[in-house]
């Protein structure tokens, strides 16, 4: 069963890449048939840059929204109600500390994602403009 699941994962990872390569090859063959010969590198380059532009744009938007949300959650925490009067004080403290730590870690991670993906997006969008 484990082998099948590994094979399934590999297939899921590899098949989109193979599909993209096939599409690129078909497009390039069509271009070569049309007479424009050295366009292949340009096609690959534009596929590469536009894919990265799309990925980094999505990443920067999502991470920005997520970091704003987590910051708001951290600054305005939800107050918890403990119905059990005899609940453990230390457990409550630990839970609060855990929640705070989790929020801080999420905030830092999403900010790091934003900090990385925004310059990457700007660089690659400039690259596409330069290629034009």
């Amino acid at each position: 069963m484990a082998i099948f699941s590994i094979l399934y994962i590999i297939l899921c990872l590899v098949s989109p890449i193979v599909l993209v390569i096939l599409i690129i090859l078909l497009v390039s063959r069509k271009h070569q048939n049309n007479g424009s010969k050295d366009n292949f590198e340009k096609i690959i380059r534009s596929v590469y840059t536009y894919t990265l532009v799309l990925i980094f744009l999505c990443a920067s938007i999502v991470s920005f929204i997520y970091s704003v949300n987590t910051t708001a959650e951290y600054l305005l925490p939800e107050e918890k109600i403990y119905y059990n009067e005899g609940s453990n004080k230390k457990d409550e403290e630990l839970e609060k500390k855990n929640n705070d730590n989790e929020m801080i870690v999420n905030m830092i991670t999403s900010m790091a994602t934003f900090v990385v993906s925004l310059p990457m997006f700007v660089y690659h969008i400039k690259l596409t403009k330069k290629d034009k």
Binding site: N88, K89, K90, D91, L94, E95, K97, N98, D100, N101, E102, I104, V105, I108, T109, A112, T113, V116, S117, M120
Partner: peptide
């Protein structure tokens, strides 16, 4: 590189702000 950088930041911040999932059965 990008994913490695993000996960490194995540792990380093998890080191300074560890999440300890533990609730005692017998209480404090």
């Amino acid at each position: 590189i990008v994913i490695g950088f993000i996960t490194t930041v995540n792990s380093v911040s998890s080191y300074f702000f560890p999440i300890v999932n533990y609730y005692s059965y017998y209480g404090e």
